[in-house]
Design a binder for these strands. Structure first.
Lengths: 223, 223
DNA sequence: ACCTGAACACCGTTCAAGT
DNA sequence: ACCTGAACACCGTTCAAGT
């Protein structure tokens, strides 16, 4: 990692981009045109070079995605000096994380498919663990609960993102299908109303409550 | 090349496959070579035709994915005549769902990116809702809880699938990085052991307990 | 009318050749 | 020695032309 940075710095080329400047260029593309525009070739065009040159910065496209995600995570508000109770701070952090993931088209789907690395992911982890421990949870509950919590918020964001892309925010197509199947699927039919009710924020708020309650009240985790 | 073209040309127009037979061919490809091999072009080759012909069966590649996922879901064991308590039956169903998603490379990642349609997804929904209602949960808890539960299991499966592809089942790379950051990220450092402990099944079992406990004990959902 | 080969507009990655 | 244009091996989708 430091090795690559040194190599880049000593490069005599006409455009000695730092890894940060490289990432910034990729992030600009994301902001202006969404994730689907962030390809190595498009980025190469942006940087006025051929696609082969980008392999000086990243080993493959997944590494570009990881860089981009961590760059985006710098915008998450961790409420570092919050005087809230830990649980309230945690809810604020999760909401900010969700908001950041939904800020650009395709970012949430990317987050659901990348193992988070880097400074900002680590800072987010630290803040969330701090809250969970501050809520009085055991080391084990905090650790495993962190995993579940982030997985959950990321998955919810990815589903929002997906529906947004398909212009089907309430799952209308699905709903129509379900309505026709009263005899064979009585439970689905009976709960059709509830299944598709609620705003995004109401559901997210409840989802957070479910996961946090579960982390606190479920049996002690044991490996 | 010209030889094959002449052979095709001299044949009468092929009778179209049923959608089922078409899906079965795609599923065979998935079984033999994993999701990454399931492309419209590969499938066209398998069916001895050009890629354009597949648009008689599906509107785009996402529809192919949806077809494939539902086909895979037919293998989920719903324990229809189970005499277990609803909660136990539900755990069995979720385990079977997880196992099916992990049976083929890339399927779980696909499931995390597709809105589930079709017969088998609906049958799974019906069974899960039946269990949740059988556990005495309100209509609203059952409906919103169903969403959360499936989202959760799917997300867990997708992460397993991803790690498996990258040959990093316990997140070794991540771990090494984290260990070096004791001063700036004390919580992460202190909980490093717990964060990476536990087998996949132990963590899945706890995750199920967390979500089910949360669904039961969290505040009543309201929209 | 229907099917499909060929074309179009892209991808990520590799490598030989030019500076 | 290093950078990168060009090539390679693919994608999904469209459309004109042939039977």
């Amino acid at each position: 990692m430091a090795e690559r940075a040194r190599r880049l710095r000593s490069r005599p080329a006409k455009e000695p981009l730092s890894l940060e400047a490289f990432t910034a260029a990729a992030f600009g593309l994301l902001e202006r045109e969404g994730m689907e525009a962030v390809t190595l070739r498009r980025l190469a065009g942006e940087l006025q070079t051929g696609p082969a040159s980008l392999y000086a910065y990243v080993h493959d496209v997944q590494e570009l995605h990881a860089l981009l995600l961590d760059r985006a995570l710098s915008a998450v508000d961790l409420h570092p000096a919050s005087t809230d109770r830990p649980r309230d701070r945690l809810e604020r952090i999760c909401s900010s994380y969700l908001e950041v993931l939904l800020r650009h088209d395709g970012l949430a789907r990317l987050a659901a498919g990348v193992l988070p690395f880097g400074e900002n992911a680590l800072a987010l982890t630290e803040a969330v663990l701090e809250c969970l421990r501050g809520m009085g949870l055991s080391r084990m509950r905090a650790a495993w609960g962190f995993d579940l919590l982030m997985l959950h918020v990321t998955a919810i964001a990815a589903e929002h993102d997906r529906r947004r892309e398909q212009n089907d925010p309430i799952g209308r197509a699905h709903r129509g299908y379900v309505e026709a199947e009263a005899e064979r699927f009585p439970q689905v039919h009976a709960l059709n109303e509830e299944l598709f009710s609620g705003t995004g924020t109401a559901r997210f708020s409840w989802a957070l409550d479910v996961v946090l309650t579960g982390i606190s009240e479920a049996r002690e985790p044991n490996n």
